[in-house]
Simulated scan of single mutants.
Amino acid sequence: MTKRSIVLAAISLLVLLPIALSPAFAIDKEVVVSLGSLREAHITVNRGDHVTWRNASGEKAHLAFAQGSGAPQVWIEGTVTVTFERPGTYEYYVHQPQARILHGRVTVK
């Protein structure tokens, strides 16, 4: 490689790296809520990623994050998507009226 091609490769990397790491390239993860269970209850994502809770139980389910997380508390009748912008650990609970309370965790790097 010539010195010029090395410099061009380095410049290209500096231009493309922020684009590749931007929220436009956020990853979508899914937690499936079944009656009495969660699939992928404990997941790890990167800052800016989206997590979707999909209620496949046929019953209403209430999603609540531990106090102080700033994340929403909502009923899941279809899907609910949350974008995690801050690193940290987010404990959450899903309550279904006909089942026990389920626990999960989202770890954001």
Rank of each mutant, 00 (worst) to 15 (best):
V74Y: 06
G68L: 04
S69L: 06
K109H: 12
G58Q: 04
T89L: 10
A71N: 11
V106D: 10
Y93D: 13
G68M: 03
A41G: 00
R39I: 06
A99W: 05
V7F: 09
W53T: 03
A56T: 07
G88N: 04
V15G: 02
S37F: 00
K29S: 14
V106M: 12
I11P: 03
T107Y: 08
Y90W: 07
G48L: 01
S34I: 02
N46V: 06
S57F: 01
D28R: 12
G88Y: 02
L21H: 01
P87D: 08
V80E: 13
D49T: 01
R47S: 14
I43L: 15
R54E: 11
A24R: 07
A10W: 00
V45G: 04
G88Q: 08
R100S: 08
T83W: 00
Q98F: 08
R39Q: 14
D28Q: 13
G36P: 01
G70S: 08
A71R: 13
L21I: 06
T83E: 09
A24E: 07
A9E: 00
A9L: 08
P97Y: 07
V106I: 15
L38Q: 00
V82H: 08
E40A: 13
A61P: 02
G36Y: 00
A99G: 13
Q73R: 10
G48T: 00
A10M: 08
G104I: 06
Y92K: 04
V108F: 07
S37T: 05
A64T: 14
E77W: 09
S12K: 01
S5C: 00
Y93G: 13
T2I: 03
P18S: 03
E91W: 05
W75N: 14
I27F: 10
G104H: 07
N55K: 11
S5E: 15
T107E: 15
A26S: 12
W53Y: 09
V7Q: 08
S57R: 05
I27N: 13
L38Y: 03
P87R: 07
D28V: 06
R105W: 02
V32F: 06
F25N: 14
G88V: 08
G104N: 08
S5P: 00
P18M: 00
G88L: 01
V82M: 05
A20G: 11
I19E: 02
L8K: 10
R100G: 11
K29T: 10
V82G: 02
T81F: 02
H62K: 10
G58F: 05
N46H: 11
I101T: 15
I101L: 14
V74A: 12
Y92G: 05
Y92H: 06
I6V: 13
A24W: 12
H95W: 11
W75E: 15
T107W: 05
Q67L: 11
V7L: 15
K60Q: 11
S12V: 04
I43G: 04
E30T: 15
L16D: 05
I76C: 09
T107K: 12
E40F: 09
A64L: 07
V45Q: 02
Q98K: 15
A56F: 05
A64Y: 01
L21R: 05
V80G: 02
